[in-house]
Design a protein around this nucleic acid. Structure first.
Lengths: 348, 348
DNA sequence: TGATATAATGCATACGTATGCATAGAATTG
DNA sequence: CAATTCTATGCATACGTATGCATTATATCA
């Protein structure tokens, strides 16, 4: 047994004692900008390494009233769009020396319940995905001088910053694609009625319809789940006067709709009905689906979210910003491309 | 402007001052087992609420040398099996008053790099999913009196506890299913060769083959990604003497294999080739795939993992435990069921 | 009623770090 | 060489909480 059982944590004091220097000196060795000769620093770091010392972040955070923790609240983790988001966020945070405190909460709620817990850790900032907070809670965070950024959701009272895809434009492009393909009977499957993503995507889509002198035939909601998309598509396609083009606010619902149309109703996609999604989740690209969709530029969105958090030009009480990043239309086979139906691959 | 800008954190001292009591009393009001009359506690809690006071967890963690944070390290977050796992873990932790510090790391590496960061937060325990740690690092955690539990991966040197599905038995059941259906040319698509999941699933499958006097024809690796499954299936099915049954160690790969077989090679599944997966991810149930697979009992596995972390009967240096939970064979359409091929749904 | 046990609360301290201030020694200057 | 600046480091303190011990007020008992 060559490992020594060590029940006590190794502290900067231990390192100091081992080297015959003061605790302050050890501490300074770990802070990049401290006045300390390079040689001493190396000696200390080496000894620290040998003793297995790492600064206690709890103490550090307590003292500086700011931990290096960023809180992330995810309200829709089971949506396949988010694992990638989370993965990117986690790695990028780690790369800049920050940690992630994660909360997964029920789908599309407001997250006021969990936010106070974040304050208990003196978090450096908070990112909230697919959910909003009350403006009252936004005030609380402002008073605590803690930044909050909404990711993939926006509030219109300008109480917090947000980063979203250019939902309006992207959805307009979808509409144009479908109009040019000759579609006339449009339906939308939304997530939840009062979310910014729905409002914007539906709004952008409909605006483009109006410009072409057309209008929406139906708008139903599927709660951003596969099952919801499936069920809602059944409803629409089995109703009187079924749509010949369905724009789904998210890919999971689009895939559900696709399955309903093909597997249950025996419709051909896109010959009988075109289906378009939003997000570009991995399975959208699987051959069985070949979903035409809008790709959200996740990497860029995360970058923007982080810079909104760390932007030290303005302090936390500065006016919130709404960042919009263009989405990219990804054309696959689930939507017709031209009036005649030529040049169209049918995906079964 | 009726909100007062408050730059300083509200502390227990503030509450104490407001009520004319001592800081200790306030502190005790927040600790369930303190000797303090219920009436006083209520008065304090009410005032705390009014002032917006919440205990600082950093200070608490520092003092007690144990934060209420549990570290979670995910090595395969993009595998669709894990969002659900993460979601359940997050909610359950929150429900018992604990927080989650999340690290997403490159696929299937050992995670020694990130583990030291967890020690900096005096974490209560660590859960590592689909990855292992070195036994040296396991020692470090044992010396720090901090529990580590592997989730969906095991080590055989008994250096840490683990929670896994009963991979051997479940895979044996898959083999039996395929044998009884009349298959004779078996292939396995594994994830990575030296992972416990692969070893056990492949081992259990092959043991059952041997019992029937049969043997494996090929074993290739797809790295637990859709693309890997796709590519590997192409390789196997286009090779000389292609298999008529493929057991994929994970559903993502199985779906990739399915797509390769059907979309690219034009094979009928399961008529020409049976494909079975493992995990039961959401898309396995989608009609286009109808994947026969093994469902991992995630809820139960998470429960077990948590109880291994919190089990205070034994201390952290107690002998590690390997918990195994039976998996459930989910029969859908991607594998034949009987020699004649009757009673079999063909899923396209 | 006086002695003693009990309940409620306050005081002081420790957790591990960062940092302002003080100091001692070295280096620089006229 | 004395006076002065600079560099390296130590001392002391603060961050916000929990808790052992001491203290006071109240209840119990003979």
């Amino acid at each position: 047994m060559h490992t020594i059982a060590r029940m006590k944590r190794v502290t900067s004091k231990d390192v100091a004692r081992a080297l015959g220097v003061s605790q302050s000196t050890v501490s300074r060795a770990f802070s990049a900008d401290a006045r300390i000769p390079e040689e001493t620093r190396e000696r200390i770091l080496k000894s620290a390494q040998a003793l297995g010392y790492t600064p206690n972040e709890l103490a550090r955070g307590l003292l500086k009233s700011k931990s290096n923790i960023v809180g992330v609240v995810m309200a829709d983790m089971l949506n396949p769009f988010y694992p990638n988001v989370l993965d990117i966020m986690s790695r990028r945070l780690h790369a800049i020396g920050k940690r992630m405190l994660l909360f997964s909460v029920p789908n599309d709620t407001d997250v006021d319940e969990v936010l106070p817990f974040l304050l208990q850790y003196n978090v450096e900032g908070v990112i909230i995905t697919s959910a909003t907070l009350s403006s009252k809670m936004a005030d609380v965070f402002r008073n605590h001088n803690t930044r909050v950024v909404l990711f993939n959701r926006a509030v219109y009272d300008r109480s917090v910053s947000s980063v979203c895809c250019e939902n309006h434009d992207a959805s307009g492009n979808v509409a144009r694609l479908l109009i040019e393909a000759g579609h006339r009977r449009f339906a939308i499957i939304g997530g939840k009625p009062d979310t910014s993503t729905h409002i914007e995507r539906s709004g952008g889509f409909q605006r483009e319809l109006r410009r072409a002198g057309l209008s929406l035939q139906a708008e139903e909601f599927g709660g951003n789940t596969y099952e919801g998309g499936f069920r809602t598509a059944m409803l629409l396609l089995e109703g009187k006067n079924p749509p010949d083009a369905i724009f789904c606010i998210s890919d999971v619902m689009a895939i559900g709709a696709l399955e309903a149309a093909r597997r249950v109703l025996g419709l051909r996609v896109p010959d009988d009905v075109s289906i378009v999604g939003f997000d570009d989740i991995p399975s959208a690209a699987w051959p069985s689906y070949g979903l035409t969709t809008v790709r959200q530029p996740v990497e860029m969105m995360v970058s923007q979210a982080f810079s909104l958090l760390s932007d030290d030009v303005a302090n936390a009480s500065a006016a919130p910003v709404a960042v919009r990043i263009p989405g990219e239309l990804v054309v696959r086979g689930s939507a017709r491309l031209d009036p005649a139906g030529k040049k169209t691959r049918t995906v079964r």
